[in-house]
Computed example of a mutant assay.
Amino acid sequence: MERRTFLRGAVIGTSAAAFGGTLMRGAAYAAPAQPGPSPYGALGAADANGIQLPAGFTSRVIARSGQRVGSTSYVWHNAPDGGACFADGTGWIYVSNSEISPGGGASAVKFSSTGAITGAYRILADTRQNCAGGRTPWNTWLSCEEVSLGAVYETDPYGAKAAVRRDAMGKFKHEAAAADPVRKVVYLTEDESDGCLYRFVPTTWGDLSTGTLQVLKAGTGTSGSFTWANVPDPDGSPTATRNQVSGAKRFNGGEGCHYANDTVWFTTKGDNRVWRLDVANNTYALAYDDSLVSGTAPLTGVDNVTGSSSGDLYVAEDGGNMEICVITPGDVVAPFLRITGQSGSEICGPAFSPDGRRLYFSSQRGTTGSSSGGITYEVTGPFRS
């Protein structure tokens, strides 16, 4: 079943996220975000691509499943999912997973400095249901399999090196990944109703071939302190990784994951929550919970997450009303965009271009409701910096 993402697409280059404010600074037990006016204003009428955007923003279609990308000969994959952007000289690259099984894998689209499409190609093939993943500081894409005993594959967005399976990062129903260059670890979410949050500690930073897989331990509450414990058998067989450590904290359907400024943000779709880990002080709390908002919750079906240089967090919906919502440093949550006429789909893979002026994302099943109907978009406009 194709659904949900990750992605956590990390912002890079001049767009490196630098969160501030109460929520983004990771105050130990700050109240979850509440609905309020968007910093970009109200959404306008749907454009020619069926997307409602604030004033000053425009959209374009980058790729469609089963069709050639731009003027290239490369045919875009089905069920586009998690994604990220990478600097490429004066241009950039957007990488996207394919959440189908068998087949899966990931593809890349190259852009010039003006945003023109200059190439497209496959970077990973013959894997299973590649949902989300994460970008590394050494410019590789971690593509994660969302299947039982799924693996993490380290891929080359530039298409020069072959993908490598990273077994040391554990075998479980992987979702998203987020690299922390300060503590030199990679955080990993698990898409199970009783899943866990992990971190992988490489033996050598920059080399994911060996290291230690750890799981977060904490109480049953929505805030408090946490510790990390080694997972004895990362292979997850015969005992699943999430069941090997007593006291491992359970999360209801781990999805997107994003790191910035000593904080890990990750989402859980089963309870429509955005969690915040203060990894400098080893505390956790809720950044958003749809059951705790005043009035109608603007964000439901929480899924992929990414951040911008302004400190805004962008959360994509799987379900809800097909929105990407923004959570501001002032603890306000509001719709940023809405895709119309695609209620049988989900939004995947939000990621900013290196200069922070363009946001990429996909509708996994588009207007058809089928994996062959995926559409990948770009939104350009006056994003806050």
Rank of each mutant, 00 (worst) to 15 (best):
S101L: 05
D167G: 11
G150H: 01
S107L: 01
Y187I: 00
V201P: 00
D156V: 05
A176K: 06
G103Q: 00
P202N: 08
T114G: 13
K184H: 11
E154F: 00
L149D: 12
I117C: 08
L142P: 02
V185R: 05
S112P: 01
P157Q: 07
M169P: 00
A162D: 13
E146G: 05
S193K: 15
T114L: 14
V186M: 13
T212D: 08
K171S: 11
T114E: 14
T114Y: 12
S107I: 09
A108P: 10
E192M: 14
P137L: 10
V185W: 01
V147S: 05
A160T: 15
L149F: 14
R166F: 06
L197M: 10
T210A: 15
L208M: 14
D167R: 13
G206N: 02
D156Y: 08
A179N: 02
T140G: 02
T155P: 05
L124P: 03
V147E: 04
I117F: 04
Y198K: 03
Q129W: 08
Y121D: 04
Y158T: 03
S113P: 04
S209D: 15
G150I: 01
A120S: 13
I117K: 07
P137W: 09
E146I: 00
D191W: 04
F172H: 01
V186G: 08
G104T: 03
Y158F: 12
G170Q: 04
Q129F: 08
D194F: 06
T136E: 02
I123A: 03
P202Q: 04
G206Y: 08
I117G: 11
P137I: 07
V201F: 01
W138Y: 05
T203Q: 15
E154H: 12
V164E: 11
A151T: 14
V152H: 05
E175H: 10
E154N: 13
E154R: 09
K110I: 04
W138V: 02
T189V: 10
H174W: 09
V152R: 00
G105Y: 01
D180Y: 00
A125L: 12
G104R: 06
Y187L: 07
R135M: 06
T127W: 05
A151E: 13
H174Y: 12
G211Y: 05
K173Q: 14
V182M: 03
G104A: 07
R166K: 15
D191N: 13
A106W: 11
Q129V: 07
R183C: 06
C131H: 00
G115P: 11
A179L: 11
D207S: 15
R183K: 15
G206D: 03
A162K: 14
M169H: 03
K173P: 09
V164P: 07
N130C: 10
A160C: 13
E175A: 10
A120H: 09
A125H: 12
A178R: 04
S107E: 11
G133T: 04
V109A: 10
T114R: 14
K161W: 13
E192R: 14
D180F: 03
M169K: 03
Y121P: 08
K171R: 15
R135W: 08
S107A: 15
S113Q: 12
K173S: 10
K173C: 04
P102R: 07
P102T: 06
T118H: 07
R183I: 06
P137N: 13
S113M: 05
P102D: 09
T136A: 09
K110Q: 14
G134W: 10
A151P: 01
T127Y: 07
G150R: 04
